[in-house]
Design a binder for these strands. Sequence first.
DNA 1: GTTCAGTACTGAACCGGTTTAGACCCAACG
DNA 2: CGTTGGGTCTAAACCGGTTCAGTACTGAAC
Lengths: 341, 341
Amino acid sequence: MTNDTRPTIADVARRAGVSKGLVSFALNGRAGVSADTRERILSIAAEMGWSPSLRARSLSVGRAFACGLVIGRSPDVIAADPFFPSFIAGVEDEFSVSGQVLVLAAATPGRQEDDTYRGLVADRRVDGVILSDLRAGDPRIDLVAGLGIAAVTLGVPDVDSPFTSVSIDDGAGIRLAVDHLADLGHTDIAHVAGPTAMLHGRHRTAAFERAAAARGIRSRVVSTDFSAADGARATTGLLDAETPPTAIVYSNDNMAIAGLGVAQRRGLNVPRDLSITGFDDVELGRHLHPALTSVSTDARGWGAAAARALLIAVAGAAREDLRLPDPRLIVRASTGAPPTT
Amino acid sequence: MTNDTRPTIADVARRAGVSKGLVSFALNGRAGVSADTRERILSIAAEMGWSPSLRARSLSVGRAFACGLVIGRSPDVIAADPFFPSFIAGVEDEFSVSGQVLVLAAATPGRQEDDTYRGLVADRRVDGVILSDLRAGDPRIDLVAGLGIAAVTLGVPDVDSPFTSVSIDDGAGIRLAVDHLADLGHTDIAHVAGPTAMLHGRHRTAAFERAAAARGIRSRVVSTDFSAADGARATTGLLDAETPPTAIVYSNDNMAIAGLGVAQRRGLNVPRDLSITGFDDVELGRHLHPALTSVSTDARGWGAAAARALLIAVAGAAREDLRLPDPRLIVRASTGAPPTT
DNA sequence: GTTCAGTACTGAACCGGTTTAGACCCAACG
DNA sequence: CGTTGGGTCTAAACCGGTTCAGTACTGAAC
């Protein structure tokens, strides 16, 4: 049943009456092959159903024809985060047309993140990696640079980096949310942020504080691990305060939805008693009651852009940073004027 | 900076004063090497920081040391589905300890699912694949079998298959939900199902109808594409009926949450006016208001089991089907007694 | 008519491992 | 003392491509 003896380049060469080398030249479109010989070789190859063995190719040219993505977050948080699936879809949009393949590795309980990278590279399984969820003073930059492999970073690192960065100004998204709430009349807004160790969390927090200050708004920030549970906890803490905020800007939709649940459970009406904004604009958000006002980022486009940049970097081009279009705020029913005291 | 000249087996052999072959024997723990020679070779290898080139190994032994997962759903649906990330985490739990790697491929607009498999296998990039989201009369079984590669299926296919299946009885989960609702007094329950083309959707629907019949319950089923939007649409249709059901069993949490939104938007109180159950038990569910009653399946455990089974199949073992523990129903606040007419 | 350049092609080395056939040594046995 | 046999090790083939040095032939230039 399984016919595992695929034709090799030698079979094609024999059948075409030429040397292996010439077949290789013909296939790779290199000079030094006459037009009709090339055509003959190619048609014989097609007829025999030959395609070069990626493994042999990989060994002789020293490339893996694959790139890696290491996911550092805990699986539970990943599962709740719509970013990765969309992002991966975007990466695939690009890879699938260029014969590349995506190797996914997750840092698991039994294996630290660093070891995951080291393993991927030590085996030369990938030609490049995508560094996501950048942290402050991220050690992976030096690690990967030392490992001698191409990479792109998602976001601009806060340390010297030899790698192309592909970034989106998520601060702009937070700013839009704050301005929207300020326009509605809110003067006391809280921000439920991601982990402070993560760079994008910091950016969003800084953007939040700047935007709040610019509008003369009382602001407070509480940081979380991005999980719904932590979002709920943070919300409870905020609503328990002496003078609770009249609006909360969450740094992801998952936490915003959990926060909405907490508020409703306390008998609060959203948006009459409390306004809420999310971040990611997951599909689910528009079907909630009330529908969630959220910052929409193009995760899929980001994935495609990162993949493209990585392929360029693998090819040896110099670093050239890329900035994607700013996110937009999708205003729905979860935001409104603050309660009149 | 980049020291790209890793030591090769020849370097180790020279340094140890033996032949390449013997180093290979020593490394792979094969007989024919004296104990002290083996030790000497191994310690020299360690000292030189040598590890065998996966590419060379791959070429000579004819294995890729990688397995593939092709995701056939549209990226938007994947993004909303917590199953894949958890499942992948489980796969990684297993692969990371056995030096395997997960190659992820997504069927993209520019590339049909079949071509994705074909490409993965034609390049011999993987030693095996995981077939998820089994469809009725799934053509991928024959395709992959014809391609001559190992595989495991997630769920038991409805056609002849040479592959090990790793399955979970999701029908049991649906039955638990129906029984729970029947116990509460419901006599008119609807099921918002997944696509009819998908086998697990069919199983759940069949289980629903059987369980309803067993309890003498009026039942109806509407099928969807698994998206929140379609879940909302289905819910609207059900609630618009002459005599709407008093409870709805959704086949994933995402649709259940969207359905909850639809009900609340209409001014219905859940669970007083309408009971709702989900499927997946996402973390978010317990933070909603009301907290979602849902069927909990161990996606991560499933991933680990599938990975283990696949590695066994790749090693050449005979097919041996595997059935995972039944899912459980987590009762929360979204289900209650039906309204008294 | 030789030199020269250029094109088309071959043969062999190479990537870095695995695997097999066989050489060599020493002990035991008839 | 010659043979057999088991254990240790080497040399070389092999996996299936790429690449480079070099050869043979062609046509143009001097």
